[in-house]
């Protein structure tokens, strides 16, 4: 399960919640196939995924509403298979085939 496919890609699910879906053409759930290795030949991690989402998936030009200083902006939680990414090594977590990555923007209304 955890190995990359023969063509070196891995299939994952990416989800958006709390309004972030609006930056991704109102899609709450994406099935993505991403490279198993990054530009330097290292295993793909969350940092690579964030760059990949920003550069190739996101059509909206307001990138600052998703990334800041090469990582997700403050106020966005990254959840790897339903756990806070802090529990998994933050953006250095190496993505496995079948992983579910959820990006949640915090809400403030009440």
């Amino acid at each position: 399960m955890s190995e990359a496919k023969n063509d070196g890609t891995i299939a994952i699910t990416v989800e958006f919640s709390g309004g972030l879906e609006m930056l991704f053409s109102n899609e709450r759930k994406l099935s993505l196939t991403i490279p198993g290795k990054d530009e330097n030949g290292a295993k793909t991690n969350i940092a690579f995924l964030v760059r990949h989402l920003c550069n190739t998936v996101m059509k909206d030009p307001r990138k600052e509403l998703f990334v800041l200083d090469d990582t997700v902006r403050p106020g966005i939680l990254v959840l790897i298979n339903d756990a806070d990414w802090e529990l998994e090594g933050e953006d250095k977590y190496e993505i496995e085939e079948g992983d579910n990555i959820l990006f949640v923007s915090t809400l403030h209304g009440g």
Partner: peptide, 16 residues
């Protein structure tokens, strides 16, 4: 949330 979100990303119930 150690850092607050950028103010332009905050949407109120009145606006959203």
């Amino acid at each position: 949330f150690p850092k607050p979100p950028p103010p332009e990303s905050v949407v109120s119930c009145g606006d959203g």
